[in-house]
């Protein structure tokens, strides 16, 4: 196994900033009717213990650039609200059964109520951005709103790419296609946006945000590839069903590697399997794909790429943060690069 390079700082700060964000977030969830059909449903995911990486990264970056925690808190809440809103819709689109160790919202309440709760939660995520005007002023708040719109568009584009690939049963994809999709679908919301917004708030819109795209991309890509790997080799703490990505036909780096390296006969069988409806894919078929991934070294291949992404992230981190004064928040951001591989 990897030697743990990260101290307890990462879980400590995720817990600390996560708890502060959760407390503030609760203020934005309406306490009125219809609770059973809407507000209780949309409050479910935020109350399940997520990693809270996104809001923590936003707060830490803002503080590393000189802002106070209060300056970044509302934006951190907005990020977490939008993240949870998108999770509700993602789970429906991916037909997922579990989220954070429990049944997905649409499995509990049905698709129509879950979609409505997701819509409402995404709208509620705008509320904290409005309150930003009181603490950050109208100019900076407008910049944050601009960045939010860009992030939302990038994320939607990435999700559309992946859903489109599955709908059309696209298999002639390469690693670059995958990375572009991950950049849009995962990195913008998970890392690039929290980093950019944090720097925007901390520097009062004077920091070079472009370099944060690079760091955020490499960190987010390492995170996503490792997440895809955990779906195949994770334990019960992972929180999603094992091999669920194969069941969904999700285009992961491992699947693309397998499609490229399998024999013609195996490739044809894989193509047919991916072309059948999800519910018709048997456990035996899923296990067959999983065994092939081992046989062709697809798991190891993806691990190597993830490590390369993390190495590049470390390089980009130093380019951006080396000139900032030492702080616990800086250590936290740097530590996230290795934490990606230590989490379960």
């Amino acid at each position: 196994m990897y030697e743990a390079a990260t101290s307890s700082l990462i879980p400590e700060m995720l817990k600390e900033y996560g708890a502060i964000t959760q407390t503030e977030l609760a203020k934005y969830l309406p306490d009125r009717e219809p609770k059973r059909f809407l507000y209780d449903i949309l409050a479910d995911y935020p109350q399940r213990s997520g990693k809270m990486m996104r809001p923590s990264l936003c707060i830490a970056t803002a503080r590393a650039f000189g802002a106070s925690l209060e300056d970044a808190l509302a934006t951190a809440v907005s990020i977490e609200l939008l993240h949870n809103a998108l999770l509700i819709h993602d789970d429906i689109e991916d037909e997922s059964d579990e989220r954070r160790g429990k049944p997905t919202l649409h499995k509990i309440h049905g698709v129509p109520l879950a979609i409505n709760a997701g819509d409402t939660l995404s709208l509620l995520s705008l509320l904290p951005l409005i309150t930003n005007t009181e603490t950050l002023g109208s100019k900076l708040s407008t910049r944050i709103l601009e960045e939010t719109i860009r992030m939302a568009l990038e994320t939607a584009e990435g999700q559309a790419m992946e859903l489109g690939w599955r709908r059309e049963n696209c298999v002639d994809l390469n690693d670059e296609d995958y990375l572009v999709m991950v950049l849009k679908k995962t990195c913008w919301l998970a890392t690039i946006f929290p980093l950019r917004i944090g720097a925007l708030i901390g520097s009062r819109d004077t920091a070079d945000l472009e370099s944060l795209i690079r760091f955020g991309f490499f960190l987010g890509a390492a995170f996503q590839i490792q997440d895809d790997l955990l779906n195949l080799v994770g334990d019960e703490r992972y929180g999603k069903e094992l091999n669920g990505d194969i069941q969904e036909g999700k285009r992961t780096l491992m699947l693309l590697h397998l499609m490229e390296n399998a024999s013609d006969e195996q490739r044809e069988l894989l193509y047919q399997l991916l072309d059948t409806p999800r519910e018709q894919r048997s456990v035996a078929q899923i296990q067959w794909v999983r065994r092939l991934m081992d046989e062709y070294g697809s798991i190891d291949y993806a691990r190597e790429i993830a490590h390369g992404m993390a190495g590049a992230a470390m390089h980009e981190y130093k380019m951006i943060f080396s000139n900032l004064p030492p702080s616990r928040d800086k250590d936290f951001i740097e530590g996230l690069v290795t934490w990606v591989f230590e989490r379960t």
Binding site: E176, L179, F218, A221, D294, E304, G308
Partner: peptide
């Protein structure tokens, strides 16, 4: 489950290729 062990050279090539590709994408 007993996957094929990757040699150092292949490991390094894949990492380098991945990083180059990553920079191209970004």
């Amino acid at each position: 489950n007993g996957s094929s062990s990757t040699s150092d050279n292949v490991w390094s090539e894949n990492v380098d290729r991945g990083v180059k590709l990553g920079y191209k994408v970004i």
